[in-house]
Design a protein around this nucleic acid. Structure first.
Length: 872
RNA sequence: GGAGGCAUAGCUCAGCUGGUCAGAGCGCACGGUUCACAUCCGUGAGGUCGCAGGUUCGAGCCCUGCUGUCUCCACCA
């Protein structure tokens, strides 16, 4: 069954249809087959709140290329799709929506809130999935997962229990990053630092014994309410004698000790630091070392607590102003300097993070980090490009315990229960446990887990773990993880240690890292700048294949790239070219040709194009296997455009017109090459290749089911290919001088080719006529009494174009002399190189050989040029 | 403060383990009514591969230093 190709390449007319065809045929399904090797990718699950952006488009395109390539290579390929519940982002969206109705979370209660959240998920969660389909993503939708679905939740609980049993999950009071807007704790990785202009307020803390005061500087005077000490360096001669004494905390008038701690840098500021254990991570550590009390002075939304009536209810910035005023009034405020410092902000909402001591759940990281580091060090998992391993190591080596509890409702609820009577705590899968000590009903922890806790399990939870499913046994560990470098600490790292800990295996062998897609000016695409480019719009205008071309072409792993309309257009133009080449083949195809098969007899040009094809197959396959996707694609497009369209098709046209067996032989070669090239291109541009595939004779019903081309040694004709290159070189030479002299193609000329290899050039006769504006072509090893002519000289021939009035002998002489000088230089250079014993002895034989060949060719050419010159 | 990327034709970028590596696309110039395609065809101009050293028979490709630029991490209160 063949499909006709429309006259004009219009991707909109077939991309959706083809996607449906694949779906209906089940082409995307990962099928367990003991005969095959599995190849598995799990998608980095996009947030259900998300809309497809260029970053996704790049990520999905790369994965799709790999999946399609591996599938054609004969692997049992599986791409598991799914979405992430994105606790903070989604919860924020729901809260926002409720706000419009004048409701708060508390108004609707936990149950009511979750009902709304699920409804929201049903309504919008599928949006991004539909968008992925527009790109052509070959995901196995029958295995689509959601981080909050039953299976993933089961995996989450299982991991929680296991880690808790082992003491790797614990609950404790620690200083954590708190977002006062989202009203939840966030992990270290979720804090983004930004420079902000602030001040240094110098404050004098009077010594309790009245013998003077200590001056210190702070950027956050409001935290003074929670100061429980001031610290100096133990060896600081200025203050050593004061250690152990006390100062009076201004405003609060509490007596607090002066402690000595290495943390203080005597060189910085006054060498005295106020210590607020509840609101600064460093101070917290100092506090622990000196057993200082921890005084929390702020509420969940960063207002001052009731203990300080004067400031109670003020937000941190109002309190700061008020306290500065009061310090001034108390006469203890010194200099106020301008100061730029980095402030931590919430990566979701941008609110300044408040370090805060609170009771949270943590994962003990040190024991988990070790194996994760080791697995990359010993190469079980490797990063492409390798340099990203450094980022990975850096994070794991400096890791602190992971705060996993979130004061949110949308997420996996922590399976811990508390007895309000006796304080007993129980971690259990039971839904309503009773206290084992006093038999009372227990209250479940209200918090949920960090979204990334479930994402960390994604490579195995999606395959059925903790159950020992067939999918898990066959498809796990997965093979390649494709993601952006910005997500290494959030996700890659956590999947690694989770996979190793829970399954005993690395979750994937390769991490393919890509960069960001920036706008045409190189800026990050962002909502606030409004410079984002909607991939769906691009697809609408140019087609998904063109967009994919742009994303894959010339993109190298790990490097950022710029989006540009022109690059997409280049992809569209290429698709158009391919489209028309296919149409050309079809309109020249005899009805009796129904299968792709080479003719019994191959001509020179056939051998050439087949040889070039074999080379392409070898190289493109190797590039793909090495994740050099962009390089592979550009080789494939170069082949199709330059080799196949611009040369082979042009060269074969006379044969096609001739008809009969000659034509049919050519048709068979055209089909063979097209069929193979389409398959090579398919992973990159799946739609157009499928559409054409179905239009030309084919065996596999879908190109997705066709085998990946393999190099056929029997189709490599090195000598013939070289001969044809000589013909090409001659044609180029003729075109070249004609263009230089502005001779219009309509002005034909006779062509005399003087060569020792008559038969070789004889085979090119039809081509000179068609491609080099030749009328009659004469070939001999020697011409006597040729009229004056324009001359083209190669290493194999002297070509004369007797063009009467156009000939300027002096100019010819000058041109040939210039060429001769160039060749002489070349020969001198090559001779020098080959005379160098070190080179000849130490360079690989192939390299030396190539140089000798070059020299030989140059010498032949020089000889020809000189003979030509002699005739002028 | 620490780490890393990038710096190659006017623009956007490829150049894998050092040996056709000086390339592509776009742009530009010139010429094209060839019956697949002007979303096209032919031809051409343009770069001492940031700078300075070094290693090597041989270096955009490796090493050192420098300059510019971007990013990540840390966060001196």
């Amino acid at each position: 069954m063949r499909r006709e190709l429309e006259k004009v390449y219009a991707p909109k007319q077939f991309e959706d249809r083809i996607y449906r065809f694949w779906l209906e045929k089940g082409c995307f399904r990962g099928v367990i087959d003991p005969e095959k090797k599995p190849y598995t990718i799990v998608i980095p699950p996009p947030n259900i709140t998300g809309q497809l952006h260029m970053g996704h488009a790049l990520d999905e395109t790369l994965q799709d290329i790999l999946i399609r390539f591996k599938k054609m290579q004969g692997y049992a390929a599986l791409w598991v799709p799914g979405t992430d519940h994105a606790s903070i982002a989604t919860e924020a969206k729901i809260v926002e929506r409720m706000k419009e109705e004048g409701l708060t979370k508390e108004d609707v209660g936990r149950e009511g809130f979750l009902t709304r959240a699920w409804a929201w998920k049903e309504q919008y969660g599928g949006r991004i999935v539909e968008q992925l389909k527009k790109l052509g993503s070959a995901c196995d939708w029958s295995r689509e997962r959601f981080t909050l679905d039953e299976g993933c939740s089961k995996a989450v609980r299982e991991v929680f229990f296991r880690l808790y049993e082992e003491g790797l999950i614990y609950r404790g009071e620690r200083i954590i990053n708190w977002c006062p807007h989202c009203c939840t704790s966030i992990s270290d990785a979720e804090v983004e630092y930004e420079e902000q202009a602030g001040h240094f307020w110098h404050i004098r803390y009077p010594l309790a014994d009245g013998s003077g005061s200590l001056e210190l500087a702070t950027t956050r005077p409001e935290t003074l309410l929670g100061d429980t000490a001031v610290a100096v360096h133990p060896d600081d001669p200025r203050y050593r004698h004061l250690v152990g004494k006390t100062v009076i905390l201004p405003i609060v008038h509490r007596e607090i000790p002066i402690v000595a701690d290495e943390y203080v840098d005597p060189e910085f500021g006054t060498g005295v630091v106020k210590i607020t254990p509840a609101h600064d991570p460093n101070d917290f550590e100092v506090g622990r070392r000196h057993n200082l009390p921890v005084i929390n002075v702020m509420t969940d939304d960063a207002r001052i607590v009731e203990d300080y009536p004067k400031y109670a209810g003020m937000d941190r910035y109002d309190a700061r102003r008020a306290i500065v005023e009061d310090l001034k009034a108390e006469g203890v405020l010194g200099e106020v300097e301008d100061h730029v410092h980095n402030v931590g902000t919430c990566y979701r909402c941008g609110t300044t993070v408040e370090p805060r001591v609170s009771l949270q759940w943590f994962v003990k990281m040190k024991p988990l980090a070790g194996p994760a580091i080791e697995a990359v060090k010993n190469g079980e998992t490797r990063f492409v490009p390798e340099r990203f391993e450094k980022i990975y190591f850096h994070w794991l080596e400096n890791i602190r315990d992971w705060c996993i509890s979130r004061q949110l409702w949308w997420g996996h609820r922590i399976p811990a229960f508390y007895c309000d009577d006796c304080g007993e705590m129980l971690v259990t899968d039971s839904e309503a446990p009773v206290c084992p000590k006093c038999g009372r009903e227990m209250r479940q922890d209200p918090d949920t887990l960090d979204t990334w806790f479930s994402s960390a399990l994604w490579p195995f939870s999606t395959l059925g773990w903790p159950d020992d499913t067939e999918d898990y046994r066959y498809f796990y560990p997965t093979d390649t993880l494709v993601t952006g470098y910005d997500i290494i600490p959030f996700w890659v790292m956590r999947m690694m240690f989770s996979g190793l800990k829970q399954t005993g295996k690395v979750p994937f062998h390769t991490v393919l890292i890509h960069g960001l897609v920036r706008d045409e000016q190189g800026r990050k695409m962002s909502k606030s700048l409004g410079n984002g480019i909607d991939p769906l719009e691009v697809i609408d205008r140019y087609g998904a294949d063109a967009l994919r071309f742009m994303l894959a072409n010339g993109n190298s792993p790990g490097n950022d790239m710029r989006y540009s309309d022109d690059k997409v257009k280049a992809g569209r133009n290429f698709a158009n070219k391919l489209w028309n080449a296919a149409r050309f083949i079809l309109m020249n195809l005899s009805d009796n040709i129904t299968e792709v098969k080479l003719p019994a007899e191959l001509r020179l040009e056939d051998k050439w194009v087949l040889t070039r094809l074999q080379r392409l197959i070898g190289e493109a396959t190797e590039n793909l296997e090495r994740y050099e996707l962009g390089v592979a694609l550009s080789k494939i497009t170069d082949f199709l455009w330059d080799v196949f369209c611009d040369w082979y098709i042009e060269v074969v046209k006379p044969r096609l017109q001739e008809g009969g067996k000659t034509a049919e032989d050519a048709q068979q070669v055209l089909l063979t090459v097209m069929s193979a090239a389409l398959r090579l291109l398919h992973p990159f541009m799946p739609f157009i290749t499928e559409e054409i595939w179905q239009a030309i004779p084919h065996d596999a019903e879908s190109i997705m089911e066709a085998p990946w081309p393999e190099v056929d040694e029997g189709l490599i004709f090195s000598d013939d290919a070289a001969s044809f290159e000589a013909v090409i070189e001659t044609i180029r030479g003729i075109r070249n001088v004609r263009a230089e002299k502005n001779i219009p193609p309509s002005r034909k000329s006779a062509v005399y080719i003087e060569t020792a290899e008559e038969s070789l050039f004889q085979q090119g006769v039809p081509f000179y006529q068609r491609l080099a504006s030749a009328e009659k072509v004469l070939i001999a090893d020697r011409f006597d009494d040729l009229p004056d002519a324009i001359q083209v000289v190669t290493d194999k021939a002297k070509v004369y174009l007797p063009m009467g009035d156009l000939i300027d002998l002096a100019a010819e002489k000058e041109r040939l002399t210039r060429e001769r000088d160039k060749v002489v230089d070349e020969i001198r250079r090559l001779n020098g190189k080959l005379a160098n014993e070190n080179f000849v002895n130490r360079a690989p034989a192939a390299v030396v050989d190539a140089e000798r060949q070059k020299l030989k060719k140059a010498e032949e050419r020089l000889k020809n040029i000189e003979e030509s010159l002699a005739k002028l």
